[in-house]
Amino acid sequence: FFFSPHATGPAQSGIMSDREVVNLFLHFTVNPKPRVEYIDRPRCCLRGKECSINRFQQVESRWGYSGTSDRIRFTVNRRISIVGFGLYGSIHGPTDYQVNIQIIESDKNQALGQNDSGFSCDGSPNTFRVMFKEPIEIMPNVSYTACATVKGPDSHYGTKGLKKIIHESPTGAKTCFLFFSSPGNNNGTSVEDGQIPEIIFHT
């Protein structure tokens, strides 16, 4: 690393303090490694353009929250990485929501990723982005459950839901989503109606 051509760039740029440069070099050369002030796990590299699908054809009001998760099951026909959801916001004007989002592998009942987050809405029937901290890899023909546990006032909701959506990328790659209602306590969200209208992903 000391003799790498990369060391002459950032290390001499003034971006980092002398102490940070020393810690960084030590991190790559000694054990045990000193603690560093950055994420030292490999970062997931997303290829391709961000895409999204919306499973509803119409927006209505009102949808309430009682602490139960809105859930919808889905499968896809090819490997993708999900980075977040689009959620509906308040029917009462600008509002802040708290939300926990998760993706669960349905058959194993295993959470693959989750985030405690929030979003601000403007009272419109638009969707509002809530993102995962890291992309979640989705494999072909495996059943997953998208979950959102929303805290806040009554919101808009989607109707005339689609069971099947085919997304075609600019390169012609087709991603087919199939949706299924999640059994059990799902706050009323189904294929036809409810929350979690949008899935944001990379192909």
Results as ranks from 00 to 15, higher is better:
E37I: 01
I101N: 00
I72N: 02
G64W: 13
G113N: 01
G184T: 07
R43Q: 13
A146C: 00
P170N: 00
N115Y: 06
I136R: 03
G152Y: 06
V142E: 07
I199A: 00
V76A: 06
G118V: 07
D193T: 12
E20R: 01
L162I: 09
I72Y: 04
V150D: 09
F85H: 01
Y38R: 14
N109K: 15
L46H: 05
V191Q: 09
D40C: 05
P34S: 04
C176V: 14
K133W: 07
E134A: 10
P183Y: 06
F128I: 05
F128H: 15
C147N: 01
P170G: 01
Y88V: 02
C121E: 10
S81H: 15
G188L: 08
S169Y: 09
R55W: 01
I199C: 02
F2D: 11
S181H: 08
N109F: 08
Q12P: 00
C121L: 05
A111R: 13
R129N: 13
K164E: 15
Q57L: 14
F28N: 13
F177L: 08
H156I: 04
K108C: 08
I53N: 11
C44H: 08
R129L: 12
D122Y: 03
D154I: 03
I101P: 00
R73I: 00
R71E: 14
K174G: 01
C51L: 15
T149N: 14
I199L: 07
L112N: 08
P140Q: 02
C51A: 14
S106D: 13
T29C: 10
G188Q: 03
K164H: 14
P42N: 09
L26G: 00
Y65E: 05
N109M: 11
A111S: 15
T145D: 06
R43L: 14
S181W: 01
A148I: 00
K164F: 11
Y88H: 09
Q98T: 06
M131I: 04
M16A: 13
I136N: 01
P42I: 01
A7S: 15
G89Y: 12
G123A: 04
T95F: 12
H167A: 06
R73M: 13
G14C: 07
P170F: 02
L162Q: 15
S69H: 01
H92T: 04
T95P: 06
R47H: 12
S61L: 07
E192A: 10
Q57F: 05
F2Y: 12
E105Y: 07
W63L: 09
Y97S: 11
S13W: 02
F132T: 02
E37F: 01
F56H: 02
V22M: 08
S190N: 05
T149F: 03
E20Y: 03
S169T: 15
P140V: 11
F85S: 00
Y65T: 03
I80P: 04
T189L: 00
N54E: 03
G158V: 00
S181N: 13
P5Y: 03
T203H: 05
V191Y: 06
N186I: 12
R71S: 14
